[in-house]
Design a binder for these strands. Structure first.
Length: 436
RNA sequence: GUGAGCGUAGCUCAGCCGGUAGAGCAUCGGUCUGUGGCACCGAGGGUCGCGGGUUCAAACCCCGCCGCUCACCCCA
């Protein structure tokens, strides 16, 4: 029996893991400067939370969640025969917005001053067929703003923060797409009009789009089928059907993006797949990702807090970055430098030198240097050979001669030069080398 | 769930028209007992994805299954 990782999940190995850490640290740094604080969330929730928020008819909830009964013992299994409540079902989170909103309500955060700004990062789970940039356990970095205000300035600042983050991690070729999909007053009117128009051209559409006429007409708009493109271009557009409030909100979001110098592309065909979105929606794509080229999706969800039992006056907006895809794009652009590696390899020879080397290694590590200390004695040539293959910058040589003289030999491995130094000089030499 | 392509050493792959498995890189050891990269020599490592069939004989041909990859659906 040979074990392997289950379908759609994977190990993130060094040196790639270093890039992940850099990306996540950049998010903490940038989001922090915008006044966001981290919320750490559970990885599973009551199934009902996701059904209510994301929508029972969406594919995500309908067939892509990992859902299981919370019955750890046989006694519980017997009980379930008599009573199965919806609370007995748990689901591995397919996204985190629902959890953030649940936590917001549960902890009464509406009493906190102003709007609450939170960010999170971690794994999500959807049981889909894996492909490039899509995994069953995938990672998201996201942020949410929850509170009584739905000012367009919030939308614009959230997007500004997002672009600042992508700038920080040096993502190349990011494109921001923007749209407004209206509110629960004006969107249904538009959807019905769209459905009516789609019925007229039904025969010209593929089977997937024909099915969507009933299930979700908006999704026809982002069909990738070449044969449908001309038809879709002639369909009615939501921008022409927004109510006055949504129209004004959308216009002001665009104005405020302009104030922040953010370039974007309006895309009337940009619709979000989750039920809770309304008004502002946006998506960011990046190159090098194959077919799944969105690294971030987000939007406004003003009704969600109320839907989940919170105050009706609470509004919300947020986004989620697909970390796997972001890292993939960074790798494809070749922008990821390999991490530093060893500062020193401490080659020791003889019992007395080992004792001295152990002490020196401790003091070097305390000073922040990356030190490799061989666990067993090796031949001279072997030891230096290992130093070379581990890509150490310096080899420190400690043998009988050095111990007797109270020095260490420092060898710069790139050019082969070496010198004998006492410990204080050694430290200043290494510090200078590290900063140079 | 649907479709296509691919499964041979840790990695990348060769293996012709069927004759019981190879290279490069990597790993370990040696040449080399106070000086690495180089070179040379050697070693370990394989149920040829799994199962069945055809055949005197299957990595190769046929069937089934499993896995991986990419795409569709959907989404980050």
């Amino acid at each position: 029996m040979k074990f392997q990782a289950i379908k759609g999940v994977r190990d993130i190995l060094p040196p790639e893991s270093a890039l992940w850490n850099r990306v996540e640290q950049a998010a903490r740094d940038v989001f922090g400067t915008f006044g966001f604080a981290e919320i750490r969330l559970p990885i599973f929730e009551q199934t009902e939370l996701f059904v209510r928020s994301i929508g029972a008819d969406t594919d995500i909830v309908h067939k892509e969640t990992y859902t299981f009964q919370d019955v750890p013992t046989e006694i519980d299994a017997l009980k379930k025969v008599m009573r199965v409540s919806s609370q007995d079902f748990l689901t591995l989170r397919p996204e985190a917005t629902a959890s953030v909103v649940r936590a917001y309500i549960e902890h009464g955060m509406q009493t906190l001053p102003s709007n609450v700004k939170l960010y999170y990062m971690g794994p999500m789970f959807r049981r889909e067929r894996p492909q490039k940039g899509r995994y069953r356990q995938f990672y998201q970095i996201g942020a949410e703003v929850l509170g009584t205000s739905d000012a367009p300035g919030i939308d614009a600042e959230v997007i500004e923060m997002l672009m600042a983050f992508f700038d920080r991690v040096k993502l190349k070729g990011a494109t921001l797409y923007l749209n407004s999909i209206g509110c629960k007053q004006c969107r249904p009117v538009y959807v019905e009009k769209l459905r009516g128009e789609l019925q007229k051209v039904r025969e010209q559409l593929g089977p997937d789009s024909q099915r969507r006429i009933e299930t979700n007409p908006l999704r026809v708009l982002d069909s990738k089928l070449e044969s449908e493109q001309a038809i879709i271009e002639k369909l009615p557009r939501i921008a022409e059907h927004l109510c006055a409030e949504c129209r004004a909100h959308y216009d002001d979001v665009k104005r405020q993006l302009g104030l922040r110098g953010i370039t974007y592309q309006e895309n009337w065909r940009l619709v979000r797949g989750l039920d809770y979105y309304m008004r502002t929606t946006f998506e960011i794509t990046a190159p090098g990702l194959g077919s799944q080229n969105a690294v971030c999706g987000g939007g406004r969800y003003d009704g969600l807090v109320e839907l989940l039992g919170g105050p009706a006056t609470t509004k919300g907006i947020g986004f989620a970055i697909g970390t796997d895809r972001l890292v993939l794009s960074l790798q494809e652009s070749g922008a990821c430098e390999t991490p530093g590696g060893l500062d020193v390899y401490l080659a020791w020879f003889g019992v007395a030198a080992q004792a001295a080397a152990i002490g020196l290694a401790r003091r070097l590590r305390d000073a922040g240097f990356v030190v490799e200390l061989p666990a067993v004695e090796m031949k001279f040539g072997k030891s230096l050979g290992l130093a070379d293959r581990l890509k150490a910058r310096h080899a420190l040589i400690m043998g009988e001669d050095e111990v007797a003289a109270g020095v260490v030999t420092v060898k710069h491995l790139a050019d082969g030069t070496q010198q004998k130094l006492a410990e204080p000089e050694l430290f200043s030499y290494l510090r200078a080398a590290r900063n140079g």
